[in-house]
Nucleic acid binder design. Structure first.
Lengths: 208, 208
DNA sequence: GAAAAATACCCCTTTAGGGGGTATTTCCAT
DNA sequence: ATGGAAATACCCCCTAAAGGGGTATTTTTC
């Protein structure tokens, strides 16, 4: 039993909207239930239309795509939201993913890849454009030329988890005084004088 | 001018090692400089062999693949390390990426996809298997059913950045006393009584 | 119109954080 | 082998932050 895949498109560019619709409906088993120009337009009817895939533009008039994701997921918890965008902004990507997007495609993605992405999303995969994948991977990569020593980095990672000096000392089997010394040295190296400032600097430079 | 792509394979399974070598050398412009069974075996000769791609198994005898990545990157800063593994362990994936892996493939990846991954890595992309991509995307997704209110979540995110109560109060334009009240309520909801315990709980449940 | 969320204030005690030092040992690289 | 970095540990000091006990008002939201 091969069920029809019900798809809703939310995209304010009418030309793109029709292009997507066309290419999806050329794929056997895929059916575009409806298209909208904004999330607000889709809002009332989404639940009744019950799509399993929502293709969502980020740059929408009114509520942005990023903010629409959690709303869509609330209405259709089982649906997969695939984000489409022209921009490749790191923060936008992470916000979209944090909000529950199943996949993230740039608009230069080929027809074949869009179809593939829908299959992927249905299979629990995480479709991403190549560029998005590389941005995501880069976000994980830590800066290897940090002024901090190994131990200092380790301590700051624990600080970033909200741990207190004595908790750090216990976990590392060293004295509280030693932790204090390390933190003093770290502050001197980073030219800061508080945990939050130190963490800010380290996160900016992707050290932790 | 199409330069030959120099590739080194570090993989302890001889059968897989030969399979990879074969499939890579079938690709015009790709050349397998050498194969090793462990990082230790490769260590001395890597710099001289100067590969631009290192295919690295994670499960190696001696130094693990994860720990080998930063060492390889140190010797060959411009090389792209592509990790190959049978396991799909979240922590292992993140450690490998944090250590500088350009891509991450599972060993069930088809020959064509391995070749594609090498091209991708060279082009600055971030090749990933579908399964890896979905694990990575899931890691970004925040849990939407959290006991915390919006404001409480916001405050705990700031706590997770090492911010003090008065810094939080200033940034949110509310009184210190209000922040204290929120944090007291949060601790009650989470059944904890310290910042670090609260953060531990929230990170476990992917709230922040 | 009731419930949940956000705001704000009072009391109190303990602990953590940050800055000033100095000193020893261990380890790595030239 | 030796000099410098890293890691360890201790002393002093003071201020600020954290946490726990309350109560109460306003604003949102369903």
């Amino acid at each position: 039993m091969q069920k029809t895949v019900r798809i809703v498109i939310i995209e304010d560019d009418e030309i793109l909207q029709h292009a997507y619709k066309q290419l999806i409906e050329d794929e056997p088993g895929f059916y575009v239930v409806n298209c909208y120009n904004s999330f607000e337009a889709a809002e009332k009817k989404l639940v009744a239309e019950d799509p399993s895939i929502v293709l969502l533009d980020i740059e929408l008039p009114g509520i942005s795509g990023v903010n629409a994701i959690p709303l869509v997921k609330k209405m259709l918890p089982k649906a997969h939201v695939i984000v489409l965008t022209v921009y490749e902004l790191e923060d936008q990507i992470f916000s979209a993913l944090a909000n529950g997007a199943a996949g993230y495609l740039t608009k230069d993605t080929s027809s074949a890849k869009i179809i593939e992405a829908i299959y992927d999303a249905r299979g629990g995969g995480g479709p991403m454009s190549k560029k998005i994948a590389s941005i995501v991977i880069k976000s994980f990569q830590k800066n290897s030329d940090s002024p901090l020593s190994k131990r200092e980095t380790e301590i700051m990672r624990m600080v970033s988890e909200g741990k207190k000096r004595n908790e750090i000392a216990e976990e590392l089997f060293i004295e509280l005084e030693t932790v204090k010394t390390h933190i003093k040295n770290i502050y001197a190296k980073l030219n800061v004088n508080s945990r939050s400032d130190a963490l800010k600097v380290l996160k900016q430079h992707r050290v932790i």
